[in-house]
Design a protein around this nucleic acid. Structure first.
Lengths: 257, 257
DNA sequence: TAAAGTTGTTCCGCTCGATTGAACGCAGTG
DNA sequence: CACTGCGTTCAATCGAGCGGAACAACTTTA
């Protein structure tokens, strides 16, 4: 997960390495020294030194020969969650929408070019997904992500694409800039965005923006479900209205926080 | 938050400093360079270099002149939360208990000598508290903490006290080892632990252990409320039974996970 | 309006420490 | 008993983390 390095980017290598180690532990959901070594490309002794340091500060726990992220990250995680206004503001509207539609509702916001799911609510027939609260997501291949991109200024979109590229996840993923910008244009016109199996095959979604005022976009809310159900069973106008209504409720909530 | 450094503790200074910076940002709930400098005692340029590195890796966001922890920590936090079996296992029993008692229910576990709240449920009349999910807590001054200490072997308790000391928070806090060990003895006999305003004045609690099998303690569940209510209004035997019942339910849940 | 005091940021040299390959101890295994 | 996997330790060296001082962009004060 490399990202935005602008001009004067003299970085502290040891810090970069430690973060890589933490990220490897996270991805692997716990791992031994050699597993981390393979994932990071660092020397085994280096990894060991970092793990030892992280352990001594309580950020990593060792159980037998396996290292895992410690509960220290729980305090950080809960803090950033509650510090994000969208979390409270979107709680009930998201739950209502998933109740009404029976589908999975995801509420996300953008940070340094990636989306992060802030709220995830399951409906009574929603499909399970590996996307959950906290999951970082690419913006170009999700309904919520595209709807946010559509309301950023072009240079910001350019910068994000420069930083993260347009990796393909399915056949449908948009992988070139021109198509993306055309799509963003039509999203601005329509007021909502579609994700047609662009990230996970067979999973589609519809997303609406959450605007701060009428100028800047704060985040997005999206209904996600099996492609056939969203395309065939659903009354698109009805769903669109419910989505926009939920988004609007969140916007109002945001004004009182 | 220094902690367990055992024998060969050659630590990576740069990593220690970065973690201190992150912790300062967390405590301050966002801060500028100089504020972090004051909290950490590092040089301003050093803090700046660390913040720049953390930002470039997406762990910190900069808004104007203020740096904050990024949503990156949300993924870590959600991961460790769900990786902890107690989180799922304690969800409904904790909610039930807070419904029944109307008081705040806290479920915690131990890691590197500190407790961490895994579940926090409010009852219909529970007092607000700065203790919430993710909050690290000293073990010697909380009901849940003491009940865990009571089921650790003595050497582990000694080590924890060595590492963290017995800082006083109120007049009632236990601050010497002898009293602590006597208390732990009586907790083992009684099967439950009391916190009589030992951490926050006027707030008391009753805690029960969550045992893995009949040998090792996995965590603790506690009911917390205003001292006078828990001491006067409540039928202690009744509360004790409800507590132990909830703990037992959690233990059963843990066996199927 | 200018001066004085903030802040965040950059620069650069010094030396201290992060890094790594190799060696070690200790398991399990054929 | 050799062999292979692991986590851990060690020592040497070269690179990079560090902090003082200077700078820039502000706001506050006289």
């Amino acid at each position: 997960m490399e990202t935005q390095r602008t001009s004067g980017d003299r970085r502290i290598e040891a810090v970069v390495k430690t973060l890589d180690v933490l990220e490897a532990l996270w991805r692997a959901e716990g791992a031994g020294v050699t597993a981390v070594t393979e994932r990071t490309g660092l020397a085994k002794s280096t990894v060991h030194a970092h793990l030892r340091t992280l352990r001594s500060k309580g950020y990593v726990v060792q159980e037998g020969d396996e290292y895992r992220l410690s509960l220290r990250f729980l305090s950080f995680g809960e803090y950033v969650k509650h510090a994000e206004p969208l979390y409270e503001a979107a709680a009930t509207p998201s739950a209502d929408l998933s109740d009404r539609t029976g589908e999975r509702v995801l509420c996300s916001t953008e940070q340094h070019g990636l989306g992060t799911i802030i709220q995830a609510r399951d409906g009574n027939r929603s499909v399970t997904s590996d996307i959950d609260v906290g999951t970082p997501t690419y913006l170009h291949c999700s309904a919520g992500g595209k709807v946010m991109l559509a309301h950023f200024d072009d240079e910001k979109v350019e910068r994000i694409v420069d930083d993260w590229g347009l990796p393909a996840f399915t056949e449908e993923t948009i992988t070139d800039r021109e198509t993306l910008f055309e799509e963003l244009e039509s999203i601005r016109d329509a007021g909502i965005a579609y994700n047609r199996s662009e990230y996970v095959p067979g999973i589609s979604a519809i997303g609406a923006p959450i605007m701060d005022n009428d100028e800047t976009v704060y985040g997005a809310i999206a209904v996600s479900g099996p492609q056939h159900r969203l395309e065939n069973e659903w009354d698109v106008d009805e769903l669109r209205n419910q989505l926009l209504s939920a988004a609007n409720t969140i916007e109002v909530n945001l004004m009182f926080s």
